[in-house]
């Protein structure tokens, strides 16, 4: 939100793309490149005091950003097997005079690679199978580059902002849908699904701490949230 102190965030974008359909629009392809200039970006000062602070605007920094990338997309729209694949190669960076020595650093949500695949297969008039796969580069985070002792505590030393990466995220979801018998007034179906079918432990957060077994050492700990989750859904329309 803009105010007397905060200018509105502005961006300019240019994009160039090539789009092509084939075989009577059964296949759609596209490729696109873009570049975006971001102005009046906002971030917090180091050590910003935010709780119940009426002058939050005094705790902000203003800078700029840039985002650019390549997007590829292919889709099959007809036939028993439909679905699409999309891939993005991208970079998003921000720059603030008071952060990271004034150098550009990756935005936290910067994803170098982002791949998604969706497939739907009409097996018969009653059974439909579908699968969904996503892969993305981990968030840009700041890991310690060293450690030292201050005030009786082991403290971490940081160099460049957001220069490290969390592990990648990868997830496969599959489902099967069975249409139940229908009447004029009543339609229903059953869906059976598996969320995160490969049961991959995707990273939610990475923390650093003194090792509990050996207090003279430090260790990195990854927290993950959801493993494999089966589900059954019953849908009905009347």
């Amino acid at each position: 939100m803009s105010s007397n102190n905060i200018k509105p965030e502005i961006s300019d974008q240019v994009a160039m793309g090539y789009f092509r359909n084939a075989k009577d629009n059964t296949y759609e392809f596209s490729a696109e490149v873009y570049y975006k200039w971001l102005k009046n970006q906002i971030d917090y000062k180091n050590g910003a005091e935010l709780i119940a602070n009426a002058e939050v605007e005094s705790e902000l920094l203003y800078g700029k950003g840039r985002a650019y990338g390549l997007e590829l997309y292919a889709k099959k729209t007809k036939g028993r097997l439909t679905g699409w694949i999309s891939y993005t190669l991208a970079k998003t960076e921000r720059q603030f005079d008071a952060l990271n020595g004034g150098n550009y650093f990756p935005a936290k949500q910067d994803r170098t690679h982002d791949l998604s695949l969706v497939g739907i297969y009409n097996f018969s008039s009653r059974w439909t199978f579908s699968a969904n796969y996503v892969y993305s580069t981990g968030n840009a985070v700041t890991y310690p580059a060293g450690k030292y002792s201050t005030g009786g505590l082991t403290t971490y030393y940081y160099t460049e902002r957001n220069a490290n990466r969390m592990p990648y995220t990868s997830r496969l979801d599959i489902s099967a849908t069975l249409k139940a018998r229908e009447t004029k007034k009543y339609q229903s179906s059953w869906s059976f699904g598996l969320y995160n079918a490969l049961n991959r432990k995707n990273p939610y957060a990475i923390t650093f701490r003194d090792s509990k077994q050996d207090p003279t050492r430090t260790e990195a700990v990854q927290t993950s949230l959801f493993g494999i989750i089966p589900s059954v859904t019953y849908n009905f329309k009347f």
């Binding site: 890991y143 310690p144 580059a145 060293g146 030393y157 160099t159 460049e160 220069a163 490290n164 592990p167 432990k201 939610y204 990475i206 260790e219 990195a220 700990v221 990854q222 927290t223 993950s224 949230l225 959801f226 493993g227 494999i228 989750i229 089966p230 589900s231 059954v232 859904t233 019953y234």
Partner: peptide, 21 residues
């Protein structure tokens, strides 16, 4: 109906690549 909700938040020690300053 969530068949079996595996609410499995878990922690594990991992190896991370760190810069050395």
């Amino acid at each position: 109906f969530v068949g079996g909700l595996v609410w499995s938040s878990c922690e594990k020690v991992i190896d991370v690549k760190l810069d050395t300053a």
